[in-house]
Each structure stands twice: as C-alpha cells, then as structure tokens.
Simulated assay, not measured.
Amino acid sequence: MATVEEFAHAGASIVAERRGSGTPLYVLVHGIGMGRSVFDDLAHHLRDGEVIMLDLPGYGEAPEPRRVLTIERTADLVAAYLRARVGRPAVVIGHSMGAQIALEVAVRHPRVAERIVLVGPTVDPAARSAPRQLWRLLRDIAIESPRVIARGAREYVRAGPHLRAKFRAMLVHRPEDVLARAGVPALVLRGEHDLVAPPQWCRRIADTLPDGRLREVPGHGHETMIRDASSAARLIREFAREG
C-alpha cells in the first residue's frame, strides 16, 4: 500500500509517495520536467526495501514555489524531508537533474544519504548550454519507445510555465566542483546509448568521487529507469547491499 504526503520547508513543498517497508530505503529523485510517476517501474523492481518517490517543487503534484529553487536549495529541501519524516539514512537515487540533487544531498547532508546513485547524470561541462543539452536530449528521445515519449511529454506539460527558469537552475549548477566532497559510496549508472550523459563524463564523475564506480545498462538510453527498469534496478539493489 502506498501513502502520499506533502512536506513544506523554507517556502517550498515536495510530494512524497512511500511504498513498502524495511531496508534498504530508496529515495527516488526525478529529472528536469519529470515527476515521481516516471519511477513506477523502478519502484516495482525495488521491492526488497522501502521506496520513496518524490515530486520536486513545481513538478508532478507539488505546487510551484514562489521562486525557482537552485539545485542546492532543492537538496536542502529533500534532506529536510528525510530528517523530519523518515529519520534514517537512505540510498538517494537521482536521475538526470535528480543526480545533481542526490550529489548535493550527499555533500551538504552526509548523515541523510548513506549511498547515492547517479543515473544519467547532468550537466556534462562539455555541453553546458541550453541548446546543446536540448539537442542531446532530443536525439536521445528519438530512439526511445513511444511509451517513454508519451510519459515524458505529459510530465513536461505538468512542469508548468517556469520550465525555462528550472532549466537554467540546472545548467548553472557545477557538479564537477563538489564531486570530491561526496564522502559516501556512489554508483554512476548510464544507459549504453545515453547521449545526454556520455561515457567520458560519467567516467570522470566516477573517478573524481572518493568512492565511486561506473556501470552501464546495455540497450538503454537516457531514460534507462523508465523503460524496462529491471536491469537498472538489479545493479542498484546489488550496490545498496554491498558490504
């Protein structure tokens, strides 16, 4: 049975959907223009523990904040929710822009995240501009299934009129500047054909993290956790239970 709750902190709100119980505790953080619904399949495959899926401020069912949050402030909000409503360390899994948030949670709130998983992480410094990021995303989407395209389009519409400002907040964040400060085990996960998070960028992330490792999901692109998430979930489960 799932429970859904809204949590407000410092002028912004998230919506959290909780499923299952026990350990590990998985916290799923979506990417730009998305919402928690894109994680339905992944959550199904992570039934070995409790899963919390988030709608970030202004996405999914979460209300628009008065001002678009930075990546750092969004990480602070996620950490505040986990401290107030959960009270135990989590495996924080971020997809795309969500990987930037998961990274900042580990850097800024190390007691909240015991491990992090960065799936299709943005923003590659070699393409830190809106046109380059959009071009990579459009090329990646072109090879995805109609189901992924339809779900993504629906969530982008729900993301509201401030999507450009949200995109800008993603682009100005520099994950490469804080990677070395993430003192928890980290898994960098990319789809074999991911054009948004190319292999050289993901390798750089894994090598810069103090305790990082890189894995690829064969036959998938950037939306590896949306279209048939079983392979990604298997790698995440193995990582979460490492000694």
Rank of each mutant, 00 (worst) to 15 (best):
Y81S: 01
G87P: 03
F167P: 01
T70G: 02
R132K: 14
R67P: 03
A142R: 12
R168K: 14
P121K: 07
I149L: 15
A150Q: 07
Y59D: 02
Y81A: 01
P161D: 12
E50Q: 13
V123D: 11
L69C: 07
D55N: 07
R73F: 08
A130C: 11
P63R: 04
A62E: 03
A102C: 06
G49E: 05
V91L: 04
R128W: 10
V119F: 06
A102S: 10
P110A: 11
V148N: 02
L46T: 01
V91K: 00
R67M: 07
G120T: 13
R83Y: 09
R151H: 12
Y59V: 02
K166R: 14
A126S: 13
R132S: 15
R67L: 10
L137M: 13
S145Q: 09
Q100I: 01
A153R: 08
R158K: 11
T70C: 04
L134R: 12
V157K: 15
E61Y: 04
V157S: 11
L82W: 00
A127L: 08
A165C: 09
P121V: 13
P125R: 09
P146W: 05
I93Y: 00
A127E: 15
D48Q: 08
I71C: 00
P110I: 10
G49S: 10
A165G: 11
A153S: 11
A75G: 06
A142M: 06
M53F: 04
P63S: 04
V112I: 11
D124G: 08
P89W: 04
L77R: 00
H109P: 06
P125V: 09
V105E: 04
G87Y: 05
A84P: 04
R111L: 14
E64G: 06
H162C: 09
R111K: 14
P65H: 08
P65N: 12
I143W: 15
R139E: 09
E50Y: 08
A150M: 10
T122H: 09
P89T: 13
Y156V: 13
R168Y: 12
H95D: 07
S145H: 07
V123Q: 12
V112W: 02
G160T: 05
R132E: 15
R111P: 09
A165Y: 06
L134E: 13
E61H: 10
D55S: 03
T74N: 12
L137Q: 05
V117H: 05
A80F: 02
P89L: 10
V123K: 05
P65T: 07
A165P: 04
H95L: 13
L82T: 00
P121E: 05
I116Y: 00
E72R: 11
L82V: 01
R73Y: 10
